[in-house]
Design a protein around this nucleic acid. Structure first.
Lengths: 125, 125
DNA sequence: GCCACTACCTTGCGGTGCAAGGTAGTGGCT
DNA sequence: AGCCACTACCTTGCACCGCAAGGTAGTGGC
C-alpha cells in the first residue's frame, strides 16, 4: 500500500521543486559547465536537499532536447566513468533570464498573499 | 514549427503553483471563511491569474479530507446555488504557519541560487 | 414551464519528481 | 589476468496534480 500521504511537508517540497528545478540547473550551468553528479551536490550546498539523480538526468535530457543546453564528454578527474558536461546555449541563457524574472514576480505575489492574509486573524497574542 | 514545447514559461507557472496553491488557499481562508468561486478571484487579484476552478475544488476536497479545513453550506447572497464555505481547523492553521516558514526558506534558497550563479558569465557577444 | 445565472464537482489528459535498479568505464588489489 | 569497489550515467514504474472541458444542482425572472 502507499504511505506517501503522511508527511505533507516533504511532499510540498517535491511540488515546490517542480517549478524551479530547471531554472536552478540553468543557473548552475551558467556559472560554468557542470556534470550530473555536481548538481545534486551544488543544490544541497545551496540548501535544497532534495533530488535523487533520477530527477536530474531526465530533466537535463529534456533541456538538451529543447535546445537550452548542450553537452560534451570529458574524462573523470577522479577515476571513473567519463563525465558528461553541460553548458548553456544562447536560448538557454535567454530562458534563464526570463525564468528568473518570472520567479521573482511569482515569489513576490505568493509572499504577499501569505503575508497579507495569513496573520489577519490575530487571535494568538 | 515547433509548437508543443514553446510555452515553457506558461508551463512553469503551472508547476510553480503546485507547491504553493494549497498554502495560498489556507492563507485566504485564514482571513475569513470563503467559498470556491472566491478563490480564483482573490488569487487573480493578488497577481496569480491562473486557476480554473477545476484545480481549486479538488484541492479543497483534499484539504478537507486531510482535516485542514471544514465546510458549511450557506445560501448564496446573489441568487443561485447555495455556497460551500470553508474555514480553517486548528490543524489547518498550524499547517499554514509551518508551510509559510517552509515557503520563505525555500524562496530564499532558490533566490540565492539564481542570484549567485546566474550572472557570473557575462560573455554576451 | 422554461431559460439564464450562480455555484459546485467530475473526468481524461499530460507532465514530472522520485525510488529503485541497471549499464558502463577506471583503477587498485590479489 | 581476474575481481571488486568506485564513479558516473541512464531507465523504468509509480503516484501526484494542474488544467480544460463537461456535467449537476439550486434560484429567480419572464
Amino acid at each position: 500500500m502507499t504511505m506517501g500521504l503522511s508527511s505533507s511537508g516533504e511532499q510540498r517540497r517535491s511540488q515546490l521543486l517542480r517549478g524551479v528545478l530547471d531554472l536552478c540547473l540553468l543557473s548552475l550551468i551558467a556559472e560554468r559547465p557542470r556534470y550530473g553528479f555536481e548538481f545534486t551536490q551544488a543544490l544541497a550546498a545551496g540548501g535544497l536537499e532534495l533530488i535523487s539523480d533520477g530527477s536530474v538526468y531526465p530533466l537535463l535530457a529534456r533541456m538538451e532536447r529543447a535546445g537550452l543546453i548542450s553537452s560534451y564528454r570529458a574524462p573523470s578527474a577522479s577515476g571513473g566513468a567519463p563525465r558528461k558536461y553541460y553548458r548553456l546555449t544562447e536560448d538557454g541563457r535567454a530562458e534563464l533570464t526570463r525564468g528568473r524574472d518570472e520567479w521573482h514576480a511569482f515569489a513576490g505575489q505568493v509572499g504577499r498573499i501569505l503575508d497579507d492574509f495569513a496573520s489577519t486573524g490575530d487571535d494568538t497574542p
